[in-house]
Design a protein around this nucleic acid. Structure first.
Lengths: 196, 196
DNA sequence: TTAGAAAGTGTAGTGATTGCACTTTCTGAG
DNA sequence: CTCAGAAAGTGCAATCACTACACTTTCTAA
C-alpha cells in the first residue's frame, strides 16, 4: 500500500531483487522441508544458485532469510495508530491490529507452517521476538504524537513495550482472543489518564 | 543465604567447583580488560588452565561464563514475593526488590564495570535479558499462589512479564527511580482487583 | 564511450561449538 | 583395601555461521 519506489527500477535493481527473492524463497522452502537446523547457508545459496558470499551481501544472517517483512510490519503498526477511525482510542486501534495479526497467523493456511517453524526453532523464535520488540521506539513515538506527550516519557515507552509484548503473551495462551481482551482491559485501566 | 548443599562435598566436587570458578573469574577479568569480542574462549580456557573442551563441559556457551547467578537471582525474586512483610502487596514487594536491583547496579562500584560491559556488548545484553525473562513462569507461579489464581491465567502471566520488563524499562530511562514508580503505579491500577 | 559503482565469485580464514576416543582421578560397594 | 566404574579432564578433528580479500562481470550515467 505504500509504493514510493518506482522511479528508475533499472535492470540492475530488478536482478538484485530477483536474487534476493530467490534466496528468501529457497530458504523458506528448505527450512520447512528439512528444519532450520538441518539446512546450512550453503544449501540455501546453492538452491538459489548464488555463492554464499552473495547470500550474506543480501541478508545480515541466516535468521534474516526468513524475516523480510520488518519494514512493512512496522509501517502497519504505526498506521494502525495514526490512521485509526476518528473517535477510536489508540489502545482500541492497537488491540484490533494485534487481533488481526493473531487471526492471520492462526487461520491463514500458508502462515500456519511458517508460524510453526518459527515457534519450534529457538533461534528463529528469538529473532522474531527481538525484531518485533525493535518497533518499541517507533511505536512510542507514534503514541507520543497522538497523546501529546514526550516520546521518552517512561509511561509512554512502557505502554509501547507492553502493547507489543501483549502479542506474544496472548499468542502463548490456550485461547488468544480473550487473553488479548483481558490484557488490554487492564492496560486501559492503568493508562486511563493518557489513553482511554 | 540459601545454603542447603553441604552433605557430602567430596574432594571431587570441590575441584569441580574450583575449576568452574576459575573459568568464571578468568572470563570476567579478561572481558573487562580487553572487551568481550576481543577475547576468545581459548584465551579464557588458557587463563583458567583448562582445555576448551572442559570449558564447554562447565558452561553452555561463551555468554554463560559471565552469568553464573541465574538460580540466586530467581530465588531472590520469588523470595521477595513469598516472604514479604505481612500487609505488603505483592506489587509493593516487587517494586522494592527491583529498586534494590537498580540501586545495586548503579551505585555498587564493583557492579558498575560489570553493568557497562553487559550493556555495551549486544550479545551479553541480549543474553541477560533472555535470562531474566526466563523467570517469568516462576514468577507467575509465585504470584498465582499469593493471589489465589491459576498460574496460567493470562492476567497473571502478563503481570509477571510486565513486572520483569519494568526493570529494563526503568533502567533505560534517564532517571530510573521515578520511572519505576510511575510504571508500578500504572500496573497497580490495571491489576487493582488482583493485587492492590 | 568509458569510468566507476554495484553485483557477484572463490578462497581462505576465524571463532564458537560439538563429537569422539582417550587418560586421569576420585568414590563407594564389597 | 581394592577395584569397577562414574565423572573430570584432554586433544583432535570437524562443522557451521560469518568475514576479509582480491578478483571478474555487469550495468549505469555523465
Amino acid at each position: 500500500m505504500t509504493a514510493v519506489d518506482e522511479p528508475a527500477p533499472g535492470r540492475r535493481e530488478r536482478k538484485k531483487a530477483r536474487t534476493r527473492q530467490a534466496l528468501a524463497d529457497a530458504a523458506l522452502r528448505l527450512f520447512l522441508e528439512r528444519g532450520y537446523d538441518q539446512v546450512g547457508v550453503k544449501d540455501v545459496a546453492e538452491a538459489a544458485d548464488v555463492s554464499v558470499t552473495t547470500l550474506f551481501k543480501h541478508f545480515s544472517g541466516k535468521e534474516a532469510l526468513v524475516f523480510d517483512q520488518d519494514a512493512e510490519q512496522r509501517a502497519a503498526l504505526i498506521a494502525a495508530v495514526r490512521e485509526r477511525r476518528p473517535g477510536t482510542t489508540v489502545l482500541d486501534a492497537l488491540q484490533a491490529h494485534l487481533r488481526g495479526l493473531l487471526v492471520c497467523a492462526h487461520e491463514t493456511p500458508g502462515f500456519r507452517d511458517f508460524r510453526e517453524l518459527v515457534e519450534n526453532t529457538p533461534a528463529l523464535a528469538e529473532y522474531a521476538h527481538r525484531m518485533w520488540l525493535r518497533h518499541e521506539t517507533a511505536l512510542a513515538e507514534a503514541l507520543a504524537v497522538e497523546l501529546g506527550t514526550p516520546a521518552d516519557a517512561p509511561s509512554v515507552r512502557a505502554l509501547a513495550h507492553y502493547v507489543l509484548a501483549a502479542r506474544q503473551l496472548a499468542g502463548g495462551c490456550a485461547d488468544p482472543g480473550p487473553a488479548l481482551d483481558e490484557i488490554f482491559t487492564r492496560l486501559r485501566k492503568g493508562w486511563a489518564d493518557l489513553a482511554g
